[in-house]
Simulated assay, not measured.
Amino acid sequence: MIRVLLVDDERMVCAHLRALLATAGDIEVVAEAYDGAEAVERAVTHRPDVVLLDVRMPVADGLVAAERLSRLPDPPKVVMLTTFDLDEYVYRALRAGAVGFLLKDTPPEDIITVVRVVAAGNAMLAPSVTRRLIAEFAHGDGGARERARRAVAGLTGRERDVLAGLGEGLSNAEIAGRLYLEETTVKGYVSRVLTKLGCANRTQAALVAHDAGLTGR
């Protein structure tokens, strides 16, 4: 069973998500929290595999909670829940280690899919959302751009091509099609890119790709 912690200051949202996830069969909601500080406490107590974390909350918001959760031993996978047009600092949450990003109007079946995918160790951002997020909010400062360029300089040409695909929100299959490679080969490249860049997941790698100027080429 995939253990999930729900975090939202609107209890009706938690109730809705609990009812939805209960239909999956392989997902168990082990606890709920209603602010960011409580989320960290619940995570320590209940050891969830996945945390569905609202961005805007009292006491400690989702960004603070995401940063604190990322520092826990064997941290849970964090998926941010938000209304996209209002939450500019979601970008910072992704840098803190969040592996998913869901709009609150996401279709129910997609929420279940996201929980399963991130629990398996993958990031889950729809390509269209990835592109919008990066285009709107990934404006990193000059220092971030310089650090990213130095990091990318250590990649091979093919690894840079794969990283560019990650920066555009492409799946492994889409990158494979673009580069005329087998999907399993791309998976290996992605793993090596993450290791070389010191990224926890492909979402963080996508942000490096943007800062390094590899996207939109």
Score class of each variant (00 low, 15 high):
residue 137 F to E: 02
residue 145 R to L: 04
residue 143 G to K: 15
residue 65 A to V: 12
residue 129 V to P: 04
residue 110 D to L: 10
residue 70 S to N: 11
residue 95 R to D: 07
residue 88 E to K: 11
residue 118 V to P: 08
residue 97 G to R: 06
residue 97 G to T: 08
residue 72 L to M: 13
residue 123 A to N: 05
residue 76 P to C: 12
residue 114 V to C: 15
residue 128 S to M: 03
residue 92 R to C: 00
residue 70 S to D: 09
residue 90 V to S: 02
residue 86 L to V: 00
residue 51 V to I: 13
residue 109 E to P: 00
residue 57 M to C: 08
residue 79 V to I: 09
residue 41 E to A: 15
residue 106 T to S: 05
residue 91 Y to E: 09
residue 64 V to M: 10
residue 76 P to F: 13
residue 75 P to Y: 14
residue 64 V to S: 10
residue 75 P to C: 13
residue 136 E to I: 00
residue 40 V to C: 12
residue 146 E to N: 12
residue 109 E to K: 10
residue 133 L to V: 07
residue 50 V to I: 11
residue 144 A to C: 08
residue 62 G to R: 10
residue 86 L to R: 15
residue 57 M to N: 05
residue 133 L to G: 02
residue 103 L to P: 01
residue 83 T to P: 01
residue 55 V to P: 03
residue 70 S to T: 06
residue 130 T to Q: 13
residue 55 V to S: 01
residue 64 V to W: 15
residue 62 G to H: 07
residue 72 L to P: 09
residue 81 L to Y: 04
residue 73 P to G: 09
residue 58 P to I: 05
residue 113 T to R: 15
residue 97 G to D: 02
residue 96 A to W: 07
residue 116 R to K: 08
residue 115 V to H: 05
residue 86 L to N: 08
residue 108 P to R: 09
residue 94 L to M: 15
residue 80 M to K: 01
residue 123 A to H: 05
residue 92 R to L: 05
residue 59 V to W: 07
residue 46 H to Y: 14
residue 132 R to E: 07
residue 134 I to C: 07
residue 102 L to M: 09
residue 82 T to R: 02
residue 60 A to R: 15
residue 41 E to H: 13
residue 142 G to H: 11
residue 122 N to Q: 09
residue 140 G to T: 08
residue 143 G to D: 15
residue 118 V to S: 08
residue 60 A to Q: 15
residue 122 N to V: 02
residue 140 G to Y: 08
residue 112 I to K: 09
residue 58 P to H: 12
residue 57 M to R: 10
residue 144 A to K: 14
residue 76 P to S: 10
